[in-house]
Simulated scan of single mutants.
Amino acid sequence: MNTALSRVNSVFAYNLTTLAALAVLVFLSTNFKDKTLETKISVASPKVRFDIERMASGPERKDYGVVKLDIEADLTDLFDWNTKELFVMVIAYYETSKTDINQIVLWDKIIQRGEPAKITLNQAKPEYRFFDDGKGLLGNENVTLQLSWNVIPHVGRLPLVYSNTYQIKFPTNYISGAM
């Protein structure tokens, strides 16, 4: 004869199996959906200035990129019944003589379910400073900006999706004055 503990264990195992099967069905229903969208990103008149920071070894010169971001993206179509939130970011990629791969996150935003998913920024300052640890921005003609996002689901994998790119050519002269 079954004891009360045995019956509780059977009900728990049945419910756990049912929830796992439902989670797999939710994953399969949204996993193969295309998560790419057409977006626009641009920068008007990028500039480079230098900042001197005192380090333990003495003053060191660092390039600081001055950019104003223009972003236009409608990410509403990325939300479905399995999407919890979006993590959207603008990443700058560039090469210098010292390092082959440099990546800097300039701007990011978390868009949760129920919030407006349209992004419109005009002449916006980046949230994070665009520093290079040497003189890698001055005269650099191959800085690429890219808008990308993580679709954070309730169940399933966490894809990182890349959108359109935008090339920046930094000038060969430093500017002075306030940022």
Rank of each mutant, 00 (worst) to 15 (best):
K109P: 04
N31S: 15
N2R: 15
S176V: 02
S148K: 11
G136A: 08
R49E: 14
V90G: 03
K118R: 15
K169A: 10
A178T: 13
W107G: 00
Q146A: 03
Y93R: 09
K40N: 06
I101R: 11
N142E: 15
K68W: 13
F170V: 00
E127A: 05
T120G: 00
G177T: 08
I119S: 06
Y128W: 14
G177V: 04
A56Y: 15
Y94R: 02
E53C: 04
G114M: 11
K118L: 13
S6L: 14
A124G: 01
R7H: 11
N15G: 03
V43A: 03
F32T: 06
I175H: 05
S6E: 15
T39E: 08
T39V: 10
F79R: 00
K169D: 10
D63P: 00
P153K: 09
N140Q: 07
A178L: 12
K35G: 00
N102Y: 13
N122W: 10
T30E: 06
T172V: 09
V155Y: 04
S45D: 15
T18K: 09
E95Y: 03
A44K: 14
P126H: 10
G114R: 09
N9E: 15
S97C: 06
N122S: 13
K68Q: 12
I110P: 00
D34I: 06
K98R: 12
T99C: 04
Y64N: 03
P126K: 05
K68M: 14
N150K: 04
N9K: 15
P126M: 07
P46E: 14
P46R: 06
D70R: 05
V143H: 04
T18L: 09
L19P: 02
L16Y: 12
T76M: 13
